[in-house]
Nucleic acid binder design. Structure first.
Lengths: 199, 199
DNA sequence: GTCTATAGATCGATAGAC
DNA sequence: GTCTATCGATCTATAGAC
């Protein structure tokens, strides 16, 4: 029982890079074969459902990563302030250090009738709800938290658009730092009983 | 000399909708033919360069619209405060009322080696610079204006991602209103000599 | 589990009648 | 300026040898 030359995780990572670079429709099996070093036979052995199953595996992997590193802390694993910091650390690590992109965001903009629509909606909804819940735990009113959470998600997703448009992470990193400080300030203000001023 | 059944402008609009719904790679000439009601012969008569020229026409149309409705006011046609309001009005009209999407943003996320990379970069760079210049004219420091402009662009682009992910414009419109108020407040503060507090 | 060969459909693009 | 017919290439997916 020889070991696969490519671990499943590495394989999914390669797939992620291809779908990122070419888009779902633009990524051909020939492209995928080149990027993974596998022939079509091997690819279909690993993913009998073909390209759609490959993309689904990438999204599932992405969802797992977010569940562990982002949602879990926000949803109760950590005090609000620490959870927010963990979220921004994870986002920075994921998109800048590891060089990933947000395949959910990319698929959201393109492809009206993608088979992944439900997953996309669920991803952002869960992220939004987790962030709102965390801020509310930190003493922010629900309405205010709702606005801040939407703003934070939009800044991150839009930041990735600019990241790629400008071919550099400087603007994206500045946006992350800026929003991180803003949320910290809101939580600190609530903590010390000061009236909220932001938003 | 019979009139074309579809004006060039209407044709480009239809093309825009197809590329929006399917993405560039995902939009086949069969899709485009269905959406426009034209056969391939007619399409190639109008766009000898094929699909790439069709997409280029959509981007050119989009660029023209932005030049008129967004960049011109920001770049000097109006007082800063009025220009910012004009920008948000145009953005709301374009993305909500007219139901367009930001094809620049969609193409930016997907397709690494798209032939449109330079246009995409130029679009966002010009928008960013125009907004910075406008804020500086309003008395904001360049560093502060730079941050605010990046934040504004990211919120708009990310807002469109959420707009589509959530299948509703409510969150997007809230983001627009929120950022509009923030920029207004910054300009008003500069106007009255108050120290800036946002960002 | 990997490969090659290939099926069957669809792709972008062209030619030529009207 | 629109259509139909069709080309060659490429696509996803399968079959079967090793």
């Amino acid at each position: 029982m020889a070991r696969a030359r490519l671990e499943r995780g590495d394989l999914v990572r390669r797939l992620s890079e291809v779908f990122h670079a070419r888009g779902y429709a633009g990524a051909s099996l020939a492209d995928i074969g080149t990027a993974t070093g596998l022939g079509k036979g091997s690819l279909y052995h690993a993913f009998p459902g073909g390209k759609e199953e490959m993309a689904a595996a990438v999204l599932a992997d992405l969802a797992d990563r977010f569940a562990d590193q982002v949602f879990a802390p926000l949803e109760g694993g950590l005090p609000p302030l620490a959870a927010i910091e963990a979220m921004f650390d994870a986002v920075h690590r994921h998109f800048v250090t590891d060089g990933h992109i947000c395949l959910f965001g990319a698929l959201s903009l393109t492809s009206d009738r993608t088979p992944f629509r439900a997953r996309i909606t669920a991803h952002f909804r869960r992220w939004h709800q987790a962030l709102v819940a965390c801020l509310v735990r930190g003493g922010v009113t629900r309405a205010h938290a709702d606005g801040l959470a939407g703003e934070t998600l939009a800044l991150i997703e839009g930041g990735i658009v600019l990241y790629r448009a400008f071919a550099g992470s400087a603007a994206f990193e500045a946006l992350l730092a800026r929003q991180r400080a803003r949320l910290m300030a809101v939580l600190a203000a609530r903590d010390s009983g000061t009236a909220q001023r932001t938003g």
